[in-house]
Design a protein around this nucleic acid. Structure first.
Lengths: 245, 245
DNA sequence: CATTGTGAATTGGTTCACAGCT
DNA sequence: AGCTGTGAACCAATTCACAATG
């Protein structure tokens, strides 16, 4: 079904480059997905403020996008949470969105590497608020193993496989140094984990069928440096005021 | 020159949505920039391995992209570091890339918020390896102010403005809770900081001309959940082996 | 009648395929 | 002979603009 569209040009049968890393077989476009997470946050805020209806103009402004794409994104979702002449049903849409994103299912998450970053994530409220249940913490430093972080004991990386099995871990966050990342990734995959969020600054190799995403902090810093350097007015935030017609 | 292409449809003059958040006036495409940071990393590794030449096929494989786009990206850079029949000059290209990204200029970075995440970043070697100099740390918790992190004292957030001036801070990383982020952002901007990397889970409002980027860890987790949930074989990593023709 | 939902138009990014160098 | 550089073709994402509708 999705094994590499054989669009190669005839010869060169052994080239084996990733044809489209970051691509997806079907489903919502990646760009839409990234925005959906923002919409969900905006909806939660609106819900907290007691609003039960949001028109696309306001909604879009709060999310930092324009309203056309917001409407298009939401239309891709299916479901019927917008009412013409009125706006979107906050509660219903939030629920629908969360379900679509897979946040209504329990994810049992292991954090591999309990340095500052790993501990930061372990304590991150956003985790458990969205159906991510912290199931295990690992570290390879014997000085750290056994400590309790966020009411979970840090387990030895040596016991990775068995602990993963014990706790039914189905998602892993890797917050370990770059050089260790590939080995750990291999072990996670061998242990049956098919969803990995990687904070290590390396391009991981993983077999087809394993979902790997990467958060790269120095990438963001470098791109920021580029814009700063160029003196280009990049904006990821919403311009605060725009005094034009 | 770049104040909002007046492409509105005539009426609705006061709508004031962000026309294209994340857009840029000119310069390299965003997608290319993201890859450039990966290329740079690959080049550094190659350099460390003593290679002084890389053909696009190998280069692309290591970076997890296909070779056509790698060549296209590098061609956008200008400069003449590829030699036909041979490959790319590792040293020269790395240098050129770093310069293009603005990494040859000194960035004096303040980290605002010294929780686990802030401390993780403060200790992150990737920072100083790329021209990012840690200039100041801030926190608003009196218990934390005065402590030394990474041989820098944590300063009170009350003194933000003066310390920024003192140290010529020109880039800030915000690792503070969501609710505090907008206020802090405003103060940073008022103090003259025009480049901000935001880790708080909020959409910041900032005036035009201020570069804001966001790293959103729960976004990544949610997108991962989506793919996991859908059972779609998303791949951000390089498929390890591809046994097809 | 304000606001959604969506085809059509546009813009942007990726891949193909090969000419051009070395 | 081998590999880069790039126009052309293709595909994806965004924006426009307006018909549909509660």
């Amino acid at each position: 079904m999705r094994s590499k569209t054989p669009r190669r040009s005839a010869e060169d049968g052994l080239s084996m480059e990733p044809a489209a890393a970051g691509a997806v077989a079907k489903g919502l476009p990646e760009a839409t997905l990234e925005r959906l997470t923002v919409y969900l946050r905006v909806l939660h805020v609106a819900e907290g403020e007691g609003k039960d209806n949001l028109a696309s103009a306001d909604f879009a402004r709060a999310a930092g996008v324009n309203s056309a794409i917001l409407r298009k994104d939401l239309s891709l979702l299916g479901g019927t949470f917008g009412r013409r002449g009125v706006g979107y049903d906050v509660r219903g849409l939030a629920e629908h969105l969360a379900t679509t994103l897979g946040l209504r299912q329990q994810w049992r998450v292991a954090i591999v590497g309990t340095g500052n970053l790993g501990r930061a994530l372990a304590g991150y409220a956003g985790l458990r608020n969205h159906g991510f249940q912290l199931a295990a913490l690992f570290d390879s430093d014997p000085h750290v193993v056994g400590r309790v972080v966020n009411s979970l004991p840090v387990r030895s990386a040596d016991t990775l496989e068995e602990v993963i099995g014990e706790h039914g871990v189905n998602m892993a966050i890797m917050t370990i140094p770059g050089p260790d990342a590939q080995v750990m990734c291999d072990r996670l995959v061998a242990a049956g984990v098919r969803n990995i969020l990687n904070f290590a600054p390396v391009v991981l190799q993983a077999p087809e069928g394993v979902n790997v995403r990467k958060v790269d902090m120095s990438r963001e810093l470098q791109i920021l440096a580029y814009y700063a350097h160029q003196g280009i007015g990049y904006q990821d935030a919403v311009p605060a005021e725009d005094a034009d017609a």
